[in-house]
Every structure is written in structure tokens, then in C-alpha cells.
Design a protein around this nucleic acid. Structure first.
Length: 578
RNA sequence: GGAGGUGUGGUGUAGUCGGCCUAACACGCAUGCCUGUCACGCAUGAGAUCGCGGGUUCGAAUCCCGUCACCUCCGCCA
């Protein structure tokens, strides 16, 4: 019996013909004298109809269990009038099996791979991942993922990018996330690190003159997990030579447009651009969600000019406009509490209805009117106002904007992309007591800020940029330093001694001395992109065999202890935690 | 490292301010019946000592302490 059709491919055209299908028993409906079997394969389901005249086929069908694997050869029949199922692609036909072979009998599974399995405890789903992946929805996630990767590859291939693999066993570098280490047997006491990104290798490929590179690269970061963070994940890593930032942004935006068109059939709008500074001021975030209502208002000037009570003394005054809402007293109180939890000492709310409602009555009716006027709110609009130090105030207002948008259903649907540019080059690390790279140490400083590199690191911008989609950081990149002297200056600001630099990055700096082109690039978080495209809430829904929040795999029970012999070969001893 | 949530037959849940719980319901499972179903239907039945350990109590799924697992968030993630 050799399969001739996928289940959902059998159509009315085959009526009267003999076909062979194979797959899993999705459901069995036994009417005693008549048995219906839904046979499921990757394409969908088709109904088999077995009646007692079928002899051995009937007795086999009688004993069939859900999720057993069967192969069937039979004649395609039109269903009797009135018996069609419009819900099914194959709902107008059925197969009358002449032969039925049970290829593999299934135990009763812990859950059946129907869509209700969505509600099964996730631990059980992960423990039996192969059953969970049988669900059409999960399959659809991976079909989408495949289309997305294929679209990336097609575009990049067609635009002259070369896919090159870089090592998974690489050198540990101290900057950035915690490394996963791999002990070396041949070099006792030495370790490889799994790459956090192919960053250094792709820059070396630019020095090599490969000009345009990409890689669908698995990368690793040993940090705590989140719904949108797994210890191993996939980047579409890209680098280009002889380009400026504008070239990169234009090419990468075209790439994303192509990926959406090809894999979802969606034509995207051009991406708006915001500088990091604007993003902070208007959204209180470096990854604004443009769907969550209007941007923040900056009322600082009005507050200072008119000497508003309380707010007049604040460094920054930010307001969230809530268009067309009617919050209850309880909801206002909830927002007040959230503001306090986020670190804002106070929050003024007001709402324009018949008259002006507010919690700031005590500050004077005139002030309240002035506030409403300054914000320009219309009837039915609400307003949240916070004041204080600039960065904190923007952050709190930005967070309130998101939470209020969800509370009042203001968050729209759609694909709201944007570029965030001009990230700061450095951030002060209290923990380390020094400046650290905001992106990575090879990021090109903004040319206009070069003269204050040493004198005012906080105000040095960089040629670094992110792609943000619906409030999620989707891609991050930068133009790179390719002059050894400039790189040395940046390392100095970072407090890295020449010796440390030579030890850790000497090979890169040396490479730059042999002729390095100007270059820059970006890396897309593939898993996150697919998650958003699939409308999923967790990366685990778009990774075939993901890890739990504690970094384990309930299916294979990784990580595991290893045989002492293995440890000895690696010159390792385990010190048990006390 | 911290905070919160969850944990009851195979699965999902109810019960959780102690006794009526000899733990209920749905799905699944088993057996039987059923020739047009497609979440088939009907009947009968099996199956959990309530994550684990300890404590309080005459009595604990229920209260207390500890612990484990999973989920979410903060820290962390160049």
C-alpha cells in the first residue's frame, strides 16, 4: 500500500477512483453497524466509512484506537446528499476502505491532540511534546516559521548576501550575557563558549571581503528565561560592507516588507523612525508600542511657565491621554496604585464629561482647567499626569500608557513597526562602576559626538538601531568601528586595559590592521518574529522543543548528570552546591 | 537573587473561613447497545488518600511550617 494522496488532497475529482492514504486515527465514531474514522495527516483529515460488509476491514476498524497509525486503500465516494460536512475541506467525500493496515498501535495518550489540548498543563504538553506538536495549530506555527525563514533566505540570496556558517564552539568574551561554556578535552582546563551572536566572526567576514553575509544562526545566552526569552534561540544575522546606516536601514526594511508579503500576504506601511531620545520622551520606552493609544504629552513647559502647583517644580511633566474612555472610580484608583508601584509619588487624573472630574480638586479649579486645556483633551477623554525626574517620569508614564491601553481596550491590532535610532553608546553600570556598551563595544559612535567620547560619555550617541514591532524589540544592529584607533578609544572609555583588550579581542583589532571596509549590520530575533506573526504569547509555541523557565527539557530531561568517566576525560570535578 | 500565581483520577476543573468528602462534574478509558456520524448517541463500570515532608487537631484536600515542580513578572538578558 503506497500512499497516493495526502488526506486533504483527496477531492471530488477522485470520486470512484482508488486512493491510498496514511496517518493517525483522529476520531472514531462507532455506530455499531457503521464506523466512521477521521484519518489525520499533515494536510488535514478525511473521513473513512466502514460498514460490516467490509469483513476484515470492519473488524480492524472495530478495534482501532485513537492516535494509532494506519494505512488505507479504498475507493473515494461522494457522501449521500445532506451528509456533507461544510466544515471540512474533504467534507463532501469519504473513503470506503478496501484494505486497512494498522502500522502502529497507540497507547491511550495523556491528552488527545485536538485544539482543546491548548488548555492542558504546559508541563504535560512539553513532557509529551510530540503529541502536542500533532495539533494542527502547532503544525501551522512551524509551517509559518518555515515560510518566514524561506522568505528571509530568498530575499537575502537574491540581494547578493552569502550565507556562511560560523563556529558554535567559540571563544568566551566577558562583555554581554553569561556564556554557556563547553570544556575542551584536548586542552584541559580550557573552555569554548557557545556564541551569544556571531558578531566577531561576521566582522571578520567583512574584513575578508565577503561584502554581504547572512546566517540563520542558533545563539546561546545563559540568563534567566521569560515568556519571550529562551537560552538558545535563532537569529537571522546580517552584515554589509561599504554602506552607511541609511543603506542598512533601507535594505533591512525592504527585507522585512518582503518577509511579511511572502509569508503572511501582508503589505506593510513604511516604518516610521524615532530617535532613542524621542522614543523615551514620547513613549517612555526604547521599544514603543504604537498601537497603545497616542504618544505621551510633554507638559513640562506649561507647568514651569504657569507655576502649576506641585508639577511646576518637577523636572519633567508627562501626560497620558486616554481618548474616549469612562473609567470607574475603582479603575482610577487602580491606576493611582500602579503609578505608586512604578515609583511615582503621585498621579493626577482627570476626565472631561459634563464637567471635569479629577482627584486634584484640592489644587484648585483654575489649575485643573489649565491642565485640561494644556493637554487639549476633548469630552470623554481621560488624562493621567505624572511629574518628577525626567527619565523616571517618562518611564512611569510610558508604562501607565501601556497598562491603561489594556485596561480600556485602547490597544489596536495591526503591525506597527518602527525604527529606533541613535541609541546611547554607553550606559553607566553601578554594579561594575564603569561605563559599559549599550549595544556592544564595536558599535560606531555617532560622528557628531566623537569629540565628547572621553569628556561626556553619557551624551555620546551611536549609530545603533532597533526594529520594533508592536512594542517588541525584533532586531538590533549598528554600524561598526573599523578603525583600530577609534576602537582603542572606545575600549579606553570602557575601562578595558590594552592588555585585556589584546587578550580578548586582539585578533579582531589585528584583522582591522590588514584592511577593513566600513561595515554594519543587524540581527533579527527569528523566534520572536514568528511568535508575533503567529499571535502566540510565548516563544515556546514556536520552538519545537523549548526549555521550561528553569532551563530544563521535560521530554529529554536535559540537563542531566554525566558519567564520572566523562568528567575525568574533561579534567573536571563537580563541586556540589552546599 | 526577589515577588506573585498554580498544583485534586489519564486530562480539565469543583470542593479550599476543618467534620455533611466514604472527594463531585466533564472529557478520556473499559464493557455492552446502536447503519449516516463528524465534539455521534445511550447504558453500565473502572480509575484520585487531593505535588511531597512535617506539624496543629478528636478530625486536614481544606489551617501552619518546610520543600519540589510549573507559569508570570522584577533583577539579569553587550
Amino acid at each position: 500500500m503506497h500512499r497516493t494522496h495526502y488526506a486533504a488532497e483527496v477531492s471530488a475529482q477522485e470520486i470512484g477512483k482508488t486512493v491510498a492514504v496514511a496517518g493517525w486515527v483522529d476520531r472514531r465514531r462507532d455506530h455499531g453497524g457503521l464506523i466512521f474514522i477521521d484519518l489525520r495527516d499533515r494536510s488535514g483529515v478525511i473521513q473513512l466509512r466502514v460498514d460490516p460488509s467490509a469483513g476484515p476491514v470492519f473488524s480492524a476498524a472495530d478495534r482501532l484506537r485513537p492516535e494509532s497509525v494506519i494505512a488505507v486503500e479504498g475507493v473515494v465516494r461522494a457522501r449521500p446528499p445532506g451528509m456533507e460536512n461544510p466544515e471540512l475541506i474533504t467534507g463532501a467525500i469519504e473513503i470506503e476502505p478496501m484494505r486497512l493496515a494498522v502500522l502502529s498501535e497507540a497507547k491511550t495518550p495523556p491528552f488527545l491532540p485536538h485544539e482543546e489540548a491548548e488548555r492542558v498543563d504546559e508541563l504535560v504538553r512539553l513532557r509529551y511534546r510530540y503529541l502536542d506538536l500533532r495539533r494542527p495549530k502547532m503544525l501551522a506555527h512551524f509551517a509559518l516559521r518555515n515560510r518566514v525563514v524561506f522568505a528571509f533566505r530568498r530575499y537575502l540570496h537574491e540581494h547578493g548576501f552569502l550565507e556562511v556558517e560560523t563556529p558554535a564552539l567559540a571563544r568566551s568574551t566577558p562583555e554581554g550575557a553569561r556564556d554557556f561554556l563547553v570544556p575542551s578535552r584536548l586542552q584541559p582546563g580550557h573552555f569554548y563558549a557557545l556564541p551569544q551572536s556571531p558578531q566577531l566572526f561576521k566582522q571578520l567576514l567583512m574584513v575578508a571581503g565577503f561584502d554581504r553575509y547572512y546566517q540563520v544562526a542558533k545563539v546561546f545566552r545563559d540568563e534567566d528565561l521569560r515568556a519571550d526569552r529562551q537560552p538558545e534561540f535563532t537569529q537571522v544575522d546580517i552584515e554589509m560592507s561599504f554602506v552607511d546606516q541609511e543603506d542598512v536601514l533601507r535594505e533591512m526594511e525592504a527585507l522585512v516588507h518582503a518577509v511579511f508579503r511572502e509569508s503572511l500576504g501582508v503589505d506593510l506601511e513604511p516604518f516610521p523612525r524615532l530617535t532613542w531620545d524621542e522614543a523615551q520622551r514620547r513613549y517612555g520606552s526604547d521599544k514603543p508600542d504604537l498601537r497603545a493609544g497616542p504618544p505621551l504629552l510633554d507638559l513640562t513647559a506649561a507647568a514651569h511657565r504657569d507655576h502649576w502647583p506641585v508639577l511646576g517644580a518637577a523636572e519633567h511633566v508627562a501626560a497620558v491621554v486616554l481618548p474616549g474612555v469612562n473609567p470607574s472610580r475603582r479603575q482610577w484608583d487602580g491606576l493611582l496604585e500602579r503609578a505608586r508601584a512604578l515609583g511615582a509619588p503621585g498621579l493626577i487624573w482627570l476626565w472631561r464629561g459634563e464637567d471635569l472630574r479629577t482627584n486634584a480638586r484640592a489644587l484648585g479649579a483654575g489649575f485643573v482647567e489649565a491642565l485640561a486645556a494644556a493637554a487639549g483633551i476633548a469630552r470623554g477623554d481621560g488624562l493621567l499626569v505624572v511629574g518628577g525626574p525626567r527619565a523616571e517620569t517618562c518611564a512611569v508614564a510610558g508604562q501607565l500608557r501601556l497598562e491603561a491601553a489594556d485596561a480600556f481596550g485602547l490597544r489596536q491590532s495591526g503591525w506597527k513597526f518602527l525604527w529606533v535610532t541613535d541609541f546611547p553608546l554607553f550606559e553607566w553600570s553601578d554594579e561594575e562602576g564603569r561605563w559599559v556598551s549599550a549595544h556592544h563595544p564595536f558599535t560606531m559612535p555617532h560622528p557628531e559626538d566623537l569629540d565628547r567620547l572621553e569628556t561626556d560619555p553619557a551624551r555620546v550617541r551611536s549609530l545603533a538601531y532597533d526594529v520594533v514591532l508592536n512594542g517588541v524589540e525584533l532586531a538590533s544592529g549598528s554600524m561598526r568601528i573599523f578603525q583600530p584607533e577609534l576602537q582603542a578609544r572606545v575600549f579606553r572609555v570602557l575601562g578595558l586595559s590594552p592588555e585585556a583588550v589584546t587578550a580578548q579581542f586582539g585578533f579582531l583589532l589585528e584583522a582591522f590592521q590588514y584592511g577593513a571596509p566600513p561595515h554594519g549590520g543587524i540581527a533579527f530575533g527569528l523566534d520572536r518574529l514568528v511568535m508575533l506573526m503567529a499571535g502566540a504569547k510565548s516563544l515556546r509555541e514556536v520552538i519545537a522543543f523549548p526549555k521550561t523557565a528553569r532551563g530544563t527539557d521535560p521530554l529529554t530531561e536535559a540537563p542531566s548528570r554525566v558519567d564520572p568517566r566523562q568528567l575525568r576525560e574533561l579534567s573536571l570535578t563537580v563541586v556540589e552546591p552546599s
